[in-house]
């Protein structure tokens, strides 16, 4: 029982990332009808927002400390980050320590901006073109974004540590009545899961309980009629694109400490997120979230030693297998609506 629970917990962090990316993909697909192959790149850019902020905060100047010497006997050079010099070591140090959560503040405007530019500058011209063209142009964009990041940040993964207060693990098992040391779980993964839940709840709440969201939902159902009612639906859809980009970006920001960001992390996640969208049902937001968590947890179960000794390599291919089975038995996905992307 406790190992069962542990596997579910282990699947939550990846599942959260899948769910967030798939949610953004579905938002874009549901509103604009565009298949966005560059969505993984947005996730990756989000992660690099955290890297950039961390680099900015740790920009430092060098002073020579005459009182100490290094092992060669020369005066020791001490690097002091500017923020520590400006705000004092306590507050400045805390800023650096909390750079990943702080990067959320940076990522939101950056990602929304990128989303706007992408939609207005490129994707707008592809509404009337066939899906193949949309796939191809966003695929090209994904390569370009990825290469730009590679040019500036190099090809190696960059460590982005979580705040020291949230480092380490906690024993969840004792909290819910298991023996000690049975279910030990890293704190940051828990944080990531709750963060994802908050964002998902935020997006659903926004769509469900605001006038803006209501109009967007109406536009998803029948774009033309909403337009005829005198509502500028295109502008709202552009904003939704920005929000979808921000969701992917935020998923990336907080993912850094779990897996050091590198330039191709977006593509690695994109392929899986597409599978998640297809399993959940094209155009269905709850389906995307559900399938994201489901596949994340399934992947975690397939990674147990029992599973990998029974069927070697099952952890690598389980998601694709599930996708193939789902597509063949329930072509619309788990929660797909009728009439969305049908022949």
């Amino acid at each position: 029982m406790d190992s069962f629970l542990l596997q579910i917990l282990n699947g939550l962090d990846k599942g959260s990332a899948y769910a967030l990316i798939a949610l953004g993909l579905t938002l874009i697909f549901g509103t604009l009808g565009v298949v966005n192959f560059a969505h993984g790149a947005l996730f990756m850019i989000g992660a690099f927002c955290a890297v950039t902020l961390n680099k900015l905060l740790t920009l430092s100047f060098e002073t020579v400390d005459e009182t100490k010497t290094d092992f060669l006997g020369n005066p020791l050079k001490v690097e002091t980050p500017y923020v520590e010099a400006w705000f004092g070591p306590e507050f400045g140090g805390a800023l650096i320590d909390w750079s990943v959560p702080l990067a959320i503040l940076l990522a939101i405007p950056v990602m929304v901006g990128i989303g706007f530019v992408m939609e207005r500058g490129l994707i707008k011209h592809f509404y009337k073109r066939p899906h193949a063209d949309q796939i191809l142009v966003t695929f090209g964009l994904a390569i370009v974004l990825q290469e730009i990041i590679k040019y500036y940040f190099g090809a190696n993964p960059i460590q982005t540590p979580e705040p020291s207060a949230l480092r380490g693990s906690i024993d969840i098992g004792t909290m819910i009545g298991f023996e000690a040391n049975r279910i030990i779980y890293p704190i940051w993964r828990l944080v990531y899961f709750f963060f994802a839940m908050v964002i998902i709840a935020g997006v659903f709440g926004f769509l469900q309980f605001t006038t803006f969201g209501m109009v967007v939902r109406a536009g998803m159902a029948d774009r033309e009629t909403v337009g005829l009612l005198g509502i500028n639906i295109d502008r709202r859809f552009t904003i939704m694109f920005g929000i979808a980009a921000a969701v992917a970006g935020l998923a990336g920001v907080m993912y850094g400490p779990l897996n050091p960001p590198n330039y191709h992390m977006g593509m690695d996640f994109l392929v899986l997120s597409f599978v998640v969208v297809v399993v959940g049902g094209m155009g269905s937001l709850p389906g995307a979230v559900l399938a994201g968590f489901m596949l994340g947890i399934l992947e975690s179960f397939a990674s147990t030693t029992w599973a990998t000794t029974t069927i070697p390599g099952i952890n690598q291919i389980i998601i694709y297998l599930v996708a193939i089975i789902v597509l063949l038995t329930r072509p619309r996905g788990l929660m797909g609506r009728k009439g969305v992307m049908e022949e």
């Binding site: 392929v271 597409f274 996708a323 193939i324 072509p331």
Partner: peptide, 17 residues
Amino acid sequence: RRSGIYFSILTLAFAQM
């Protein structure tokens, strides 16, 4: 068995597998 975007994603999934 599927066409359009589903076909693209299915082939992508197979290739990645």
